[in-house]
Amino acid sequence: MTDTLARTPLHALHLELGAKMVPFAGYDMPVQYPEGVMAEHLHARTKAGLFDVSHMGQLAIRAKSGVTRDAALALETLVPADIAALGAGRQRYALLMNDAGGIRDDLMVANMGDWLLVVVNAACKDADAAHIESSLADTCTVERLDDRALLALQGPASEVALATLAPAVSAMRFMDVIATEVAGVPCIVSRSGYTGEDGFEIGMPAERADHVARAILALPDVRPIGLGARDSLRLEAGLCLYGSDIDTTTTPVEAALEWSMQKSRKAGGAREGGYPGADVVLGQLANGAPRRRVGLRAEGRAPVRGGAALFADAQGARQIGVVTSGAFGPTVGAPVAMGYVDTALAQPGTSVFAELRGRFVPMQVAAMPFVTPGFKR
């Protein structure tokens, strides 16, 4: 099976470090290293962890006019975020939409001055690239950056560690993006990540990824982290996993992602709507949605996993939602989950019950994130 899986440029390094490899989004990826998921999770929360995220897709979008604002306005026909107002050297989270108001993918968009850098999810990258290429063909060129690797350095010690190899990162704030050298290699660095901690994502030529990764791993307080801890870290941070917590059947309002739509793209804004499914999304912004993504806390220490049905009572008489992600939260010291419930039951403190192996486990709707974010504003 591994023979049919793609490999990132750091595959040999993962094996050298003793990683346990698993299939993920068509790639052979490290799920954990010898220390284990729990230790890796806590290390990223307290010091700094290095993740290989080279399986993600990277795209360069350029306006045929040569004007970056034209590329931004073109991309706004596909996403409900304000890309035109994104200044050079800044990055923004955005949602790629379908005609039903559902989410085709979630992505990051950075203004690199004369072009836009878009990072998309691994499982969606080919479909995303084809969709964006065909949709923007008249106004933009879309280049697939398949020769690039991507690393994420996450945790409170990330700045001090990375600044020894790239001093310019110390001046960055959350969602800044710069071009700089890391260990002598030209890189694109954003101050962002998927853990709720301060940290950086570092893009570089694929052939230099091993050099950069080894230089970062040689720094004090930095250890390699696998997909297992990446999942528990993002869940504690209340961050969605595409394909689990959001998908083509989920609207931004249902997913509690209204914050990703700036005022200019909402009702009365300068560029209201104009993207696929805008009528559905604007209607839900005005009138509410039938269901809502919420945080969930269970009693005891047994996690309630994704797929568990949620009920309004302990007899299971009326299903009111479903768990989409669930795991033990090492930082929280208890199970954490997220899922969808009827909007009327979405207030924190509301009691619900999850079906777990034939019994009904009490849970409470909880505010997210489950941990305090460590972003450098």
Rank of each mutant, 00 (worst) to 15 (best):
M21H: 00
L257M: 02
A179P: 04
H14I: 01
L107S: 02
R45V: 09
A171H: 11
V118T: 00
R291V: 10
D313H: 01
L13K: 00
A267C: 08
G358F: 06
H14T: 00
M112W: 08
S54W: 01
A255I: 11
D106V: 06
P167I: 01
G307C: 07
L116A: 04
P186E: 13
M338C: 13
D146W: 11
T251C: 05
R357A: 14
S158H: 02
C240Y: 09
A298T: 03
E272T: 09
P348E: 10
V182F: 06
P335F: 02
D82Y: 11
A110F: 00
P156V: 13
P9Q: 02
G283C: 07
L5S: 02
A152C: 08
E254K: 04
D28Q: 02
V120R: 02
P348Y: 13
R377W: 13
E355I: 06
Y33I: 01
H43V: 11
Y93N: 12
H11K: 00
P224F: 15
R265K: 09
R148D: 05
T248Y: 12
A94N: 05
Y27L: 10
A206N: 12
P9Y: 00
A270W: 10
G358N: 03
F353S: 01
G269I: 06
Q262M: 06
L78I: 00
Q319I: 07
A149E: 01
A122D: 08
L50W: 03
G87E: 07
V281E: 06
C187A: 08
L310F: 04
V332Y: 10
E299A: 15
L86M: 04
E236M: 09
I61P: 04
V182P: 09
R318W: 14
G300S: 05
L150M: 13
A270P: 07
T343V: 07
N111V: 11
S325L: 01
L59I: 09
M108I: 14
A229N: 01
A344V: 11
